[in-house]
């Protein structure tokens, strides 16, 4: 699957308009230099050969060299990976804690005013452009109140992480909240819940012990999908907060047609995605024993 992604990316990049050698030059370029750069970048060889070379290098854990930065892609990505990982994990944490919390409260008070307000907020979260939310948060908490830095990675301090994580997490909080609420309501209507309630357990206990567990299946799916979203969807947040992560790198590399970096970054995303899905599948097994057969089949 990971290789499938790389073939697709490679093909698209090869088909994409724009010449990496030309993109590496400024406002003017002369034919000799362009030709020399193409030779240096090995762009003069047939496409299948280029891809095969890339694969052969990959087998030796070598991702090639960046056209733009003229140094190993591995270095280029590895130095940005910690920033991206911190942001993605923090954003996931934000979306899970707030999403499940808001969803649960809304479900308990289903169809109340509180429910409507919370779900309205969830929709707001989903439909607010990341760019705008980030700027507004920065305006309020940094420019006006001066509590947090406007942007930057700093020395990796937590205060630099707060706004980007909330911004990126907000997008997903809404989705998780809606999914939690609807799954909970779904489960609540099922028979075993009536039994639990008949035993005289309180609504919160019923929800917490029985419903939440059963309702988590779709929620976990959404979170798993979300992790990939957060990674790939990070460029805008990274841009607003000048966060030195892989998302911004990928955008810049696509713009520069820096093929080795694009391939490397996509490969990393694909691996993270596979890992995330593996975790989701494992989580299914823990949450819902009935699914063991299904997953095993």
């Amino acid at each position: 699957m990971v290789l499938g992604v790389t073939v697709l990316v490679f093909a698209l990049n090869a088909a994409a308009l724009g010449d990496p050698a030309r993109a590496a030059m400024g406002q003017r370029a002369d034919p000799e230099t362009l030709e020399r750069l193409r030779r240096e970048y090995a762009l003069d060889r047939p496409l299948p050969v280029q891809y095969a070379t890339w694969l052969a290098r990959l087998a030796r854990a070598d991702l090639g060299e960046s056209f733009r930065e003229q140094r190993p892609v591995r270095e280029v990505i590895v130095e940005r990976l910690p920033a991206t990982a911190r942001l993605a994990l923090a954003a996931t944490l934000v979306s899970v804690v707030f999403g499940v919390g808001i969803g649960a409260i809304a479900a308990v008070r289903a169809r109340s005013t509180l429910d409507h307000v919370l779900m309205g907020l969830a929709v707001l979260g989903i439909s607010t452009p990341v760019f705008w939310l980030g700027l507004m948060l920065a305006l309020v908490f940094s420019v006006t109140l001066g509590w947090l830095p406007v942007s930057g990675y700093g020395d990796g301090a937590l205060r630099n992480l707060v706004l980007p994580a909330v911004t990126l997490g907000a997008l997903h909080t809404g989705t998780v909240a809606r999914m939690t609420r609807s799954s909970l309501l779904e489960v609540v209507r099922q028979d075993f819940m009536a039994t639990a309630r008949a035993k005289g357990l309180s609504e919160w206990t019923v929800l917490g012990k029985h419903a939440l567990r059963n309702a988590l299946v779709p929620v976990v799916t959404v979170i798993g999908i979300g992790l990939a979203d957060l990674l790939v969807g990070a460029p805008l947040t990274e841009t607003v907060f000048a966060w030195p992560g892989v998302g911004r790198l990928l955008v810049a590399a696509v713009g520069q047609r820096d093929l080795p970096v694009v391939m490397g970054a996509v490969l990393v995303f694909a691996l993270v995605y596979v890992l995330g899905n593996l975790l989701v599948d494992l989580a299914y097994l823990v949450i819902d024993p009935r699914m063991r057969d299904a997953v095993r089949a």
């Binding site: 920065a138 420019v143 001066g146 030195p244």
Partner: peptide, 18 residues
């Protein structure tokens, strides 16, 4: 030399004296 791609962010950093 800081690297800040979003112009609104650069402006905010300037206004806050950074």
């Amino acid at each position: 030399f800081r690297v800040i791609p979003a112009e609104a962010t650069r402006f905010n950093e300037y206004v806050t004296g950074q």
